[in-house]
Each structure stands twice: as C-alpha cells, then as structure tokens.
Design a protein around this nucleic acid. Sequence first.
RNA 1: GCGCCGCUAGCUCAAUUGGCAGAGCAACUGACUCUUAAUCAGUAGGUUCGGGGUUCGAUUCCCUGGCGGCGUACCA
Length: 516
Amino acid sequence: MSDRQQQRSGPDRPAQQNLERLIAGRREKLERLTEQGVEPYPYAYDRSHTSTEIRAQEQSLTTAGTRVRYAGRIMAKRGTGKTLFVPIQDDAGQIQAYFRKDDLGVERFKQIQKLVDIGDWIGVEGSVFRTKSNELSIAVEDFTFLAKSIRPLPEKYHELSLEVRSRQRYLDLIMNQPTRERFRLRAAILAEVRAFFATEDFLEVETPVLQPLYGGATALPFTTHHNALDMRLYLRIADELYLKRLIIGGLEKVYEIAKDFRNEGMDRTHNPEFTMLECYAAYWDYHDMLDLTERLLRRLAERFGRAGQVPYGEQTLDFTQPFARVRFLDALAERLGCDPLALDDDALAELARKHDIETGPGKGRDKLLDELFGRLVEPTLIQPTFVLDHPQELSPLAKAHRSETGLVERFELFACGFELANAFSELNDAHEQRARFAAQQALQRAGDAEAQPLDEDFLQALEYGMPPTAGLGVGFDRVIMLLTDSHNIRDVLLFPHLRPEPHQEQPSDARGDQPE
RNA sequence: GCGCCGCUAGCUCAAUUGGCAGAGCAACUGACUCUUAAUCAGUAGGUUCGGGGUUCGAUUCCCUGGCGGCGUACCA
C-alpha cells in the first residue's frame, strides 16, 4: 500500500492527486488503528437501540440510566478540546454522541479525535442524556470501530447535483433524508397496492421477462441471445399476452408488478426499464376495470395524500370525487374546434403538420389522431381524468366498441398531464385478433417500426377460448411520482438508467448479448 | 434523434475586455471540557472534461469528441 502512496509519476491522472492524498491519509489512519490493536473491519455489532427507539424511549432510558448500544455513520465532528460531539446517522435519523477525554482516557480519546473520520462507521455505548442546549445525546463510555470510509463524503450544506444523486445514489441516501423517505414511501405504496389486490381477490403471478416474441404494447424491445438454445430473445415490453394466457387457463383474476423494458427515449417520465402493474379479470368489461382503477387510486390518495387530496407542484389533485370522464374524440374535437372524423385524409394530414407532427407512410389516420391528442389534450389533463373509447387502429388487442364503429372499449387515466393507466375490454375473438395482427403487419410493412408482431402462440391459446375479460396496465413509477410530488422519474428510481461514465468500460469479452 | 446551456480543488461555486486561477466545506497542524453549518490561528490541495486551432498569451474565442441539464419528438 505504501508503494502505491509513493507513486507520483505513475499513470494516475494529476487531477486526482488531491483525492489520492485524501485517500492515502485515511488509509494511514486505518494502519495506525490496526497497529493499536483495533479490528478495522469487525464482523458484527450488537446494538441495543436504533435512533428511532432512543427518541421514542428517551424518558425511560434517561430515568433508568440505561446503557444503550447505538451504531451508524459519522456525519460530522465538532471538537472543543477535551470533548467531542459526533452526530451518528442510522437508517432513520441521527443521534449525537458525546465523547469526553476524562471518561475515555487519553489513548481512546485520541483515537476518536485523530484516527476516526467523517464517513466512518462506529458503534457507541453509553447513557442517554440532554446537553445544556437540549440536544438528545449519548455520553459515550465505550466505542467500537465498525468500518473505515477512505473516501471523503460530499460537502454538507449544498445540494448534490442531479447527476451525482442519480449516479451515486448511496451518496444521495447518506446526505439527504428526504431521499430515504421517498424510497420508504415507494415501498409502502407497493405494499398498499398488494394489499388492495388481495382485498379484491386477485392472484399475484410472475410471467417471463425473456420472451421469444415481444407483444402487448406498441414499443421497440431490447434484444438478447440465449446461448444454449442459440435463439434470439426479447426483454418484455409488457406482461399482457402472458397474463391473458392465465385467464385462458382459468385463473380468473391475476396481477403482476414487474419490470418492463422499452428501447426508446428517456426523459422525466420515461426510463428504459420501468415498473408496470398489470391486472386482468375474467367476466369484466372496461367499465368494471375503470371502477377498480378509481378505487385503487382513491385508496392510495387517501392513504398517502391528505385525505384524498394529493399536492403536486403548484396543483392539488383531488381523488375524492368521481374522476372526470371524457371520450377521446370529444376531447380532441373540443381542442381542435372541429370534428376530426369529418376531415378527409389530406385535411387531417395538414392539420397534423400544422402542429409539428410528421406525416407519411406508416402513419395512419388513427395514429395522427393519437399524436394530436398527445400534443393538444394530454398536457391539459391535470386533475385525474378518464379518456374513453379510442380509435381501433391504436389498440390491436382491445375489443371493438359495442355501439361505436371504428372505436374500441378502452380508457386511459391521466393526471398531472401524463398517462397513469391504460385499460380495455380485451379482444377474445381469436379470428378477429388474427385479423388485427395482420393489420399491424401491414402497418409494419408501411414503415411503422413499433407495429405489434403476430404472435402465433398467443393466437393458439386464444383459440382455446378466453372469457370476457378486462385488463389494466398502470405505470407504477408514475404513480410514485404523483404520490411523492416528484417531477422526474429518476427521483423515484433508486438506480435510473444513465450513460456510463467514460472510465466504466464494458468488458470486451462479454457473452450472451447479440449486437443488433 | 434534434435544439439550447453547462463541465474550474474530494464537494458546492467564483474569476472584469483574452493578461499571475479564488472562496466556503472536507483534509492537515495548533488552541479550546456542552458543540450542533462549532469557533479561532495557520498549512496544503489545480494538465480549468479530452483532443486540435487562433493568439505574445486561452478557464475565457473557434473546431471536434465525451458526459450532464433543460426543452422537443416517440413511448408508460
């Protein structure tokens, strides 16, 4: 190790010399601790109380004079000569440790004063008390070194950049209590969703991530390769076609919460891998599913908002009343000021171009209507709103509308200007489904790369008969964004997708992936 | 993808018209027995993201590559 410290003219980048010095200094302290007989990386520490428990039990702990054993990361050191105040952070918060030279002796005090750094892990043992300035503290009688941090923590009173927060999430978690709270909340919301589906009698299932053919959504997949079978596989873009196979199998109510993968752009509401909630119920139509969606969102808003009101930026979203409902074409007509169905193809294309939407082969009428809707209507849907009855071409897996030709029985839920959920009465006529797939293939030939492929295996399953069924997909990360007042999906993903840093080179002998 | 903006010490940020690259925190040395952004005195820390160009001289201007932010497009 000392050889490396002496290495001045090596390949190390000069810009890192200062950091190297800081690290070398901490390694040196580690060596000196070891020389003094301190085990630098012990195997366990038997703590008696967490910070939460100490705060909750302060009264009894102080009156009884109980010795507590508390552990965590050192977040600061404030020395006043022969005493030292050290805030120690555990999972839930911080408790200040109070070291006195007179209590610990010269050598032990010198260890904590000189050889222990901000960022190190430590266990302290002593009694709980309040300082003169009324700070809850532990008067340390003994301490145990638990682990060394050889890199300096970020500076303490400025925010980390979004990049550092995302790329080095552990630093964000160390430095920012709200980040910890946000991810605890995410876990609580997930648990609440599972509890909801349990009360609704849904069965939680798991379906394949690696699929021989992708389907169930309009999106581009990630491709990989299975060596043993020497075959191309796709990471799923949706769970839909497998969950429907389960409905066909007679599991009447199923749901899955899992990662889907879409090989598309990233922005504040999109990450290449994201968590999707999908559920399917036999004998239901999309009206039943709409009711379930409203029950779910209302329950989450009541549990995690303020009595069903959810603050989001400047807005407050109200989930207590029945959500607004608007038909797709009506909403679009209102924004356009004319009936889009009354326009001929040329007029529609011109209208699209007027709103900066590309036209051309592979973009049918319905696709243009959808893009116009996305451009003109979606951003205006702040309060929770159901949009119903979409054009058929956009929804090759949805059942035709029972009374409106050219439309399907479908709804999307919007809030905060983005889509939260998508559902339909599922198409269960195998013959019709085959025709819809054929239409998708025609679109694909015309240049629509996202058109859905024909899934012969799924069609075979469907030919055994699927009962009337409604299905729902919910962008779970977006629900988390909504309920935690987060405005970038990266804030609700512990490890959002980022470009690798230049020094993180990929192994050149990587196997399994097939370059596309 | 495209457009705009950014990248300076471990972290957060300065630097006049192109003229010696600075501060706070962190680190190091010392003082201090109730601090809490502890305080006080001092020290050290830089290939200004990489490469190229213009110039007597580039953190600054130009080109190019990398990464990031915001906007925009497709999608949950």
